[in-house]
Amino acid sequence: MRRIPTLLLLLLTLAAMPAHAAEDLVSGLSTDLIQIRSDFTGTDIVVFGAIETFDPGTPAEDRDIVVVIRGPEVPRVVRRRDRVFGLWVTRRQIPFTGLPGYYFIASTRPLDLVASADTLERFELGPSRLTADTDVPASPEEIAQFHAATVRTLTREQLYWENTNSIEFLSRSLFRARIPVPSTVPSGEYRAEVYLFHGGTVVSAQSTPLFVDKTGFERELYDFSNEAPFSYGLVAVFMSGALGWLGFALFRPRG
């Protein structure tokens, strides 16, 4: 729900734009549905776009493209271990809500050259600028440390990406970005956002939904385990019993 103020802001920003900045943006996705089946090992999607009514008068160094993919919100708990009598024990945990389960950002130049810190903050551009809420009392320094640890860990797990220079220009106005999606991505609704910046301000933006969903057997099993956990447990035990019996029957000890 935190996305609504940002989008509203974006619309207001665009409405306030002077009319002569006429460059506009169209973008699309190579797919709008990623299906997780039993052979799913991760995939790539391609975001492509074009700058319409391309204005050759705008200096190339003033023009920046930013591509963002945000996954559905996933609540997380961040823990810090400390040494107690020689053993590493969890001493502090802070739960975070509001962080996307997947986040990818690519830009034509390093983000701090694209726009001011304020603008980047407002559009949550860059993993370190994603806002997170917690219901645990903690000092801002502590929150910052735990937030940085979250971004570091999720980047290591290939769920968060920050790529400069990964937007490929096919012509002066046509571009694309390849987005790696690992097998550990959460399912749910994603949004692909493409921003066109001119000299540090957003002149055009597009947001396209994208769905990641388990399908077929995987979906059914997952739903079954959540909607009818008792029956699911019974089936698990029954399956184990049957397999155990089968093992006994096939390899029956002689005599």
Binding site: V74, P75, R76, V77, V78, R79, R80, R81, D82, R83, G86, L87, W88, Q93, P95, T97, G101, F146, A149, T150, R152, T153, L154
Partner: peptide, 17 residues
């Protein structure tokens, strides 16, 4: 594993405490 200094003293898990 309990005694050695971990690579990262922070760990992140999915869920609500």
């Amino acid at each position: 594993g309990l005694v050695a200094t971990p690579d990262d003293i922070y760990s992140v898990v999915v869920g609500v405490p």
